[in-house]
């Protein structure tokens, strides 16, 4: 995974590697090398501009799924001074595809819940590729209610291909678990902020995102169905996922335009994985501002506004 790069990233990464190598091997000043470096830097700038200002929706999907992309626990590590992970749904199991716990950001206490993907095969088997079972959603709800009881604002990170479609998941009520979260999140009398950091896959994502503020990282996606799934249904060909991504309009700016999210968080040029700490700092800034603002509302107003926000989503005519 560590040397994985997307096709469209490769030219930039190669050029950047050449630049840094050139820097490393020339100590002191060397006018010729300096000239060459300047030229290459300029070229790299132009190349980055060309690629990253014209990303297709499918390229954004690829960035959202990038194996190097920071995951929930990475962001927690960069954003929080303190994180005490809590486990289990108290009914069946602990689902490693969702992490939850108590944390501090800038000294302020809060609860954090998020989907968690794995970085390699072994981790991904453990985390089930970030696809939760019902017990994951039930753990999330348990922590939400804990937070509500102790007046802790809640931050959720969304990063899942979707809730797991498996036999055990159905037996244990995947639908019920998701549905219950959607309903109960409407009752949590504490500020709720969600950041979609990678894949916002359908109901499995929404079950952590019925929040007062929902933000998306610039290269994350939010969709009712995966592009592959959509292509399979529309054209009986999962390979047509890039076309499906276009028609589904699943990018952060698409979601913002449709009034589904509250804001977009800029990523470092090239994506969050090119400078994860910078991405974390941008998220922290947005999240702190949102909590500050929401903290001024009394609980009743907060709940009423949350309800109205979701009631206003949708496009129809009469």
């Amino acid at each position: 995974m560590s040397n994985f790069w997307l096709e469209f990233e490769k030219p930039v990464v190669e050029l950047e590697t050449r630049i840094s190598e050139l820097r490393e091997f020339t100590s002191g000043s060397n006018i010729e090398v300096d000239e060459e470096l300047k030229r290459l830097e300029k070229k790299a700038d132009r190349m980055r501009h060309d690629i990253y200002t014209k990303l297709t929706r499918w390229q954004r999907v690829q960035l959202a799924r990038h194996p190097r992309r920071p995951y929930t626990l990475n962001y927690i590590g960069w954003m929080c001074e303190e994180f005490t992970e809590l486990h289990g749904d108290r009914a069946f199991a602990d689902d490693p595809a969702i992490v939850a716990g108590l944390a501090r950001i800038g000294g302020k206490p809060l609860a954090i819940v998020g989907h968690q993907k794995g970085r390699n095969t072994k981790e991904n088997i453990h985390r089930n590729f970030g696809m939760p079972h019902p017990e994951g959603y039930r753990k999330a709800l348990r922590i939400f209610e804990l937070a509500d009881r102790f007046r802790l604002p809640i931050l959720t990170f969304v990063d899942t291909p979707g809730a797991y479609p498996g036999v055990g998941a159905e037996e244990r009520g995947q639908s019920e678990a998701i549905a219950r979260n959607l309903r109960e999140m409407a009752n949590l009398a504490v500020p709720l902020v969600t950041v979609i950091i990678g894949e916002g896959g359908s109901g499995g994502a929404l079950a952590l995102a019925v929040s007062d503020r929902v933000y998306m990282l610039e290269n994350s996606v939010y969709s009712v169905i995966s592009p592959e799934g959509c292509a399979g249904i529309l054209w009986k060909d999962r390979a047509k996922a890039p076309e499906a991504a276009e028609v589904l309009k699943l990018t952060a700016s698409d979601s913002l335009e449709q009034g589904v999210i509250d804001g977009l968080i800029d990523e470092p040029v090239g994506g969050a994985h090119r400078n994860p700490e910078m991405a974390a700092a941008a998220i922290r800034l947005q999240v702190e501002a949102a909590f500050e603002e929401l903290g001024n509302l009394d609980p009743e107003t907060l709940l009423q506004k949350r309800l109205e926000k979701f009631l206003n989503i949708g496009v129809y005519q009469e």
Binding site: L182, E184, S223, V224, I225, L234, L248, V260
Partner: peptide, 21 residues
């Protein structure tokens, strides 16, 4: 959900559930 309405169709899940609360 109705795929042809994209993410907006997904959000109807939230819209109906918050009222059921």
């Amino acid at each position: 959900a109705r795929m042809m309405e994209g993410i907006l169709s997904l959000m109807q899940m939230a819209k109906t559930s918050v009222l059921l609360a």
